[in-house]
Structure formats: structure tokens, C-alpha cells
Design a protein around this nucleic acid. Structure first.
Lengths: 157, 157
DNA sequence: ATATTTCTGACTATATTTGACCATATAAAA
DNA sequence: TTTTATATGGTCAAATATAGTCAGAAATAT
């Protein structure tokens, strides 16, 4: 009882698994023709299965020579970090919460002070020209991606 | 998976790298025949890859003995550079522009690679859950705050 | 019966490639 | 010296090749 999306997921996972460094390049059109589905279904699979929560980062490029780049990051570490900031609402992060989280990363020597300060310049509310509600989601998203990156870095040591 | 434009870019970069002073003269027609493309594609490569954000200036001359002169901008004093960039930093910043800018700061040794990578996690479009228009202004705002911070880093100590 | 997940397609966004037409510098001819 | 021919490079819009978004239909699970 496997859907097309499940099969596409397995197919991609397999390629990632057989790759040297957990980084692969594939083409959306190739996948969609391989599985006889519309191209946008590949986006659906990416969006629902290759998330930061599941330990993946995805980048892409359009036009001639376009591709999907899928990057595997270790989920366990990601999860630990995600759990730490996810006290309360899942995706919404307040300013205070964000600062506390960064400070904790400094305490744990995951970031140095300068790194924290630089990051804060982008994360602080004054850098986000939108309403309070949106600011919260932006901070959430930004921190999640930061976490994904850091977790990946740890792995590669 | 490399486009013609990518190859032309690499070819030129290599010549620049092997030059004494980072200044080279090449001919548009030579490049286009070498890579079997139309001459205007060389202009495309120049326009998209040899930008000021990436640290290049390009001059040219037409007619008999014409050429493209590609200049790798040498290191400038940190503060002057930041001020110039800050002046030139529009309110609206595209993703490519942002990345080029960060890379430039790394080249100038204003940021180290890790700092750039961390910052990119917050600045990239995937971290900004809003429409394209807003993303541009957010990146502009974030970069300005980042620059402001770096420019005053000494005094803030 | 309703909620959730999956699938589809029309429309959008972006990167690259191509070609027709334009601009300018130098050399040759008048 | 002025005009004309030749040799470069520049611009811009259209064609092509990818990928992304979103809303609604269809299928599946609860």
C-alpha cells in the first residue's frame, strides 16, 4: 500500500544513502517522468518528506542546468536542538526566546560570542520589517535552518 | 550538469587566477568560438558572474584591437569598503546579490567562512516565510544591520 | 461523514541561450 | 582630411529549459 509519493521518497532516500557525503543533485523532470506523475508532485514529496525536522535541507536552481540538491543532516542532533526551542508553540519564536536560545549555544560553546552577535543582527525584531505575528514565524524558520546547519557541521567533524 | 556559461566562467576565473596582478585582457570572439556559442553569451556571463559583489570590474574596448578587460578588485581597507557597500546597499536585496555580498566579505576577511555560513542560514529565502517583495526588503534590512554592527564592532567592545 | 493526505494542472518565476540590430574604434581609401 | 570599410564589442527581447506555488479534486484514513 505504497503511494507514488512514498515511492519517490524511497527512491531519493536510496540515492542519498548510496552517496558519499549525503549530498545529491537530481532533476525534478527526471523524477516525475520516472514515476509518471506531474512535476509538482515532486515538490509535494520534497515539502512533506525532506524537511528540516526529518534531517534534510533542500536547495535548487531553475533554468538550463537546473537541479534539486538534497542534503542529509543527522536527525538526532537536529531533534535535540529543535526540542529545545520548541517549548510552547511549534513554529513561533519570541525575541526573548530567540536570544536565550542563542545564549545557550554560546554557553555550550557551539557558537562564539561574535557569531552570536552577528546572528543577532539578523534575528532581532528591528531587522524584520513586518508585523509581530510574522516576526515570530520568521525567527522560528531562521533558527530551524541555523540548527540544521550546525547539526550538519557537528556530524562532519 | 554544467552549463556553457559555467564553463566560460571557470575558464575566465582560471586565467585571472594565473595572472600576476588580477588584470586580464581577453577577446569576446575568442571566447565565443572557443565555447561554440554566440558572442552575446559572453556578455551574459560577464553580467551575471563578474559583478562588483563578486569583486570584479570589467572594462572593454570595441573596434580593431578590441578586448574585454577583467579586473579583480584588490583588498581595500575594511571600513572604507563597508561604508561603500552600505551606501550602495539598496533597501531591496535579491538572493544572489546577498550571497555574493557575503562571499565578498569572506574574501575581504571581514567574515570567516563559518560566520558566512551561519548568517546565510538566516538570510536565505527559504528562511523568510513571506512573499518575494517582502523577502527582498527583509534581506536589505538584515544586511544593513549586519554591516552597521561590523563597522562599529571595535567601538562596541 | 469528516478530516487528512495525495494528486493534478494552470499559472508563475528564474536561468540560459540565441539572434537581430546597435555602437565604436581603427585602418584604408578618396 | 574626410569618408568608407572592417573589426570589434553591446543591448535587448524572444525562445528554451528548468523549478515553484497554490487551489481544488480525488483518494484515503479516522
Amino acid at each position: 500500500m505504497s503511494t507514488i509519493s512514498d515511492m519517490v521518497e524511497k527512491y531519493i532516500l536510496n540515492i542519498v544513502k548510496n552517496s558519499e557525503d549525503g549530498i545529491i543533485h537530481i532533476q525534478r523532470t527526471d523524477l516525475s517522468s520516472r514515476f509518471s506523475c506531474v512535476p509538482s508532485q515532486i515538490n509535494y514529496v520534497i515539502k512533506t518528506r525532506f524537511t528540516i525536522e526529518r534531517g534534510f535541507l533542500v536547495e535548487s536552481k531553475r533554468g538550463e542546468g537546473g537541479f534539486l540538491k538534497i542534503i542529509k543532516i543527522p536527525m538526532i542532533q537536529t531533534k535535540i536542538y529543535l526540542d529545545r526551542i520548541n517549548q510552547g508553540t511549534a513554529n513561533y519564536i519570541g525575541a526573548e526566546q530567540a536570544r536565550n536560545f542563542l545564549n545557550r549555544l554560546v554557553e555550550e560553546k557551539i557558537l562564539c560570542e561574535r557569531e552570536r552577535n552577528l546572528i543577532w543582527q539578523l534575528l532581532k525584531d528591528e531587522s524584520l520589517p513586518c508585523n509581530k505575528e510574522e516576526k515570530g514565524y520568521q525567527k522560528g524558520k531562521m533558527l530551524k535552518n541555523l540548527i540544521g546547519y550546525i547539526a550538519n557541521e557537528e556530524e562532519n567533524k
